[in-house]
């Protein structure tokens, strides 16, 4: 059990009468890339939303690195080292890359009650480094996110998660609406997480993408886990058959 970075026990969630999550128990192991698959409404987004603090579970417990935790807000989740990258991507297109990297966690030179003067020098320097670290080649951290391609935006989101030393990175359908080339890039990012010692949770509709970059696959259907195997012990056909 000691190698589980997050473990959830008997997690339940109801949405106005719909039992969306029916007692899910799952260990996310340190340093592994876990692929989470399932049809729409299978409960994967519900599970992820609970871990990232968007929703609260109605029942069940969550442990992070062995400690019982309560995740009430996205901020709680981020403070525990869990970073979530959404399919719609969590970037503000009208703002620069540097500003986006630090949204909600801006370095300040001094502050009163959490509000303070931005340390723009630090933001510029650190964003250059953060982007270079994920092997993303961008003109300048002052470029607007609205100018970037979908793949580049996901790259910046991943750079942001890496920069804040997240321990678990949840990627919710990060390859949706991306071209083949861009998709490969994102898959490359997910493979790269392992080298950095980051646990990856990769959610996708596309089985090929999951098999391309994950160590373990968990399939969900109707709010329950229906398959949990190492990639080497299963096949795309088997996963399809249980969904």
């Amino acid at each position: 059990m000691s190698d589980a970075i997050i473990s959830v026990r008997d997690l339940h969630k109801w949405y106005s009468g719909v039992h969306a999550l029916k007692g899910v128990t799952l260990d996310f192991k340190r340093g592994e890339a876990l692929g989470l698959v399932g049809d729409n409404g299978a409960g994967k987004s519900t599970l992820i939303n609970i871990l990232s603090g968007v929703h609260r579970a109605d029942q069940g417990e969550i442990k992070v690195e062995g400690r019982d935790v309560s995740i009430a807000t996205p901020r709680d989740s981020m403070d525990l080292g869990i970073e979530t990258i959404y399919q719609y991507n969590s970037m503000v297109p009208t703002m620069s890359i540097a500003r986006n990297l630090f949204i909600g966690r801006e370095p300040t030179r001094f502050s009163i009650l959490g509000v303070g003067i931005l340390d723009q020098k630090k933001m510029a320097e650190e964003s250059v480094r953060a982007i270079a670290n994920v092997d993303l080649h961008l003109r300048s951290p002052d470029a607007l996110v609205g100018e970037l391609s979908g793949g580049q935006r996901q790259g910046v989101a991943i750079a942001r998660a890496m920069h804040f030393k997240s321990k678990v990175m949840i990627l919710d359908e990060p390859t949706n609406h991306l071209s083949v080339k861009e998709t490969n890039k994102v898959i490359g990012f997910v493979r790269g997480l392992k080298e950095q010692g980051v646990t990856g949770v990769f959610i996708s509709h596309n089985m090929h993408h999951v098999f391309d970059c994950c160590d373990r696959i968990v399939a969900m259907a109707r709010g329950e886990i229906v398959l949990d195997k190492r990639i080497g012990d299963t096949s795309i056909d088997e996963v399809h058959s249980v969904l």
Binding site: T94, G104, R105, E106
Partner: peptide, 16 residues
């Protein structure tokens, strides 16, 4: 920064 992010793209601002 928060004001611009909130108005620029609310879901992203909330998620962050």
């Amino acid at each position: 920064n928060w004001i611009k992010a909130t108005g620029g793209f609310l879901p992203a601002a909330a998620a962050m």
